[in-house]
């Protein structure tokens, strides 16, 4: 007896409610963009400069006391957050962020903050101190944006090379969709957005593509097999044929990610959250965005002999 998440034979019509899913995607993206501009992202010091202290103490932390203790130091914009971890309910750990001081990285500030907190609770200690100067943070923003753009461009190029340009557009639309909505979720939940999140976004790019490419690969194969069927039918058939695999892979990846989310500690929780979001949205988008756009754009179906030969030749090269 096998565990079957998807019945052996499926025959869903993924385009019958095209307006609904398309509208949903557009709405989500619009909401994400709005959230991004209204609430903004909770940028970490990697991108805005400043210093964070991760404190640990033997007693539960009262944020107001910490805030009062730090007020006389005149550090400017200060945020104090208790690090939540379901596995450690004591609330002893905080993350304190102060804005960039005049000097790039000031040692006295660290000493002063520690002294001020020790006055509140003798057992306070720093588990981590991270400080990024304004010069570096500016460069990090630049590289991060460049990395995401470069990844999308590379992928666009590769898919265009291996498929038709319509496939590439569909895949990239799905990618942009995934990245935008993930960023929207970060704006909504105000999760710290730092360098690691950029890595997560790029992984989402990779994963979402992985999914889309598998569907497209089947579409390409079926287009050759059923030369007379309508494109929408072929797309539906291909998605149905690969559905079991799509769900299987998403589930195994989610199993791994969720265990990391729950057990992996709070330091990488934001990072893992971004990836979980990405896997869920990426799976959705490869079916409802990438394929829908491909359906809209249409594909050249006139497989004249020459074109077919060229295509199969290409295919054979990779197989060899």
């Amino acid at each position: 007896m096998r565990l079957k998440l998807v019945p052996t034979e499926t025959n869903f019509d993924f385009f019958s409610r095209g307006a609904l899913s398309g509208g949903f995607s557009v709405l989500m993206m619009a909401a994400s963009v709005a959230l991004f501009f209204m609430m903004g992202l909770n940028f970490g010091i990697d991108f805005r400069g400043g210093t964070t202290f991760r404190t640990n103490a033997d007693n539960a932390v009262v944020v107001a006391d910490y805030r009062e203790a730090l007020a006389p130091l005149g550090l400017g914009d200060t945020s104090i957050v208790i690090v939540q971890d379901p596995l450690k309910p004591e609330n002893n750990v905080t993350q304190i962020r102060i804005e960039a001081q005049d000097a790039a990285v000031a040692s006295e500030t660290t000493q002063n903050v520690l002294a001020a907190l020790k006055a509140v609770d003798e057992t306070v200690r720093f588990e981590a101190v991270e400080s990024v100067g304004p010069k570096v943070s500016g460069e990090l923003v630049q590289t991060a944006v460049l990395a995401v753009v470069a990844a999308i461009a590379a992928v666009l190029f590769y898919i265009w090379l291996r498929f038709e340009w319509q496939f590439a557009l569909g895949a990239v639309a799905a990618l942009v969709h995934d990245v935008v909505i993930t960023i929207g979720a970060f704006a909504l939940l105000q999760i710290k957005f730092d360098l690691a999140i950029i890595a997560a976004l790029l992984t989402i790019v990779g994963y979402s593509l992985n999914d889309t490419v598998v569907v497209f690969d089947r579409v390409r194969e079926n287009l050759r097999k059923y030369k007379t069927r309508a494109l929408q039918e072929v797309l539906n058939l291909s998605i149905n044929e690969t559905l079991s695999r799509t769900v299987m892979t998403s589930v195994t990846t989610l199993i791994a990610l969720i265990s990391l989310f729950v057990l992996g500690g709070d330091v990488i929780r934001g990072f893992v959250f971004a990836m979980i979001m990405g896997v869920v949205i990426g799976t959705y988008s490869s079916v409802f965005v990438a394929s829908a756009i491909l359906n809209r754009l249409g594909v050249k179906r006139d497989w004249s002999k020459e074109a077919a030969n060229r295509a199969s030749g290409q295919y054979a090269d990779i197989d060899a």
């Binding site: 990844a151 990779g206 490419v213 690969d217």
Partner: peptide, 16 residues
């Protein structure tokens, strides 16, 4: 072919 295509795209992002 699906395996190769899917993994090359992910690999590209890893390289970047």
């Amino acid at each position: 072919s699906a395996i190769i295509d899917a993994n090359i795209t992910t690999f590209l992002t890893a390289v970047i």
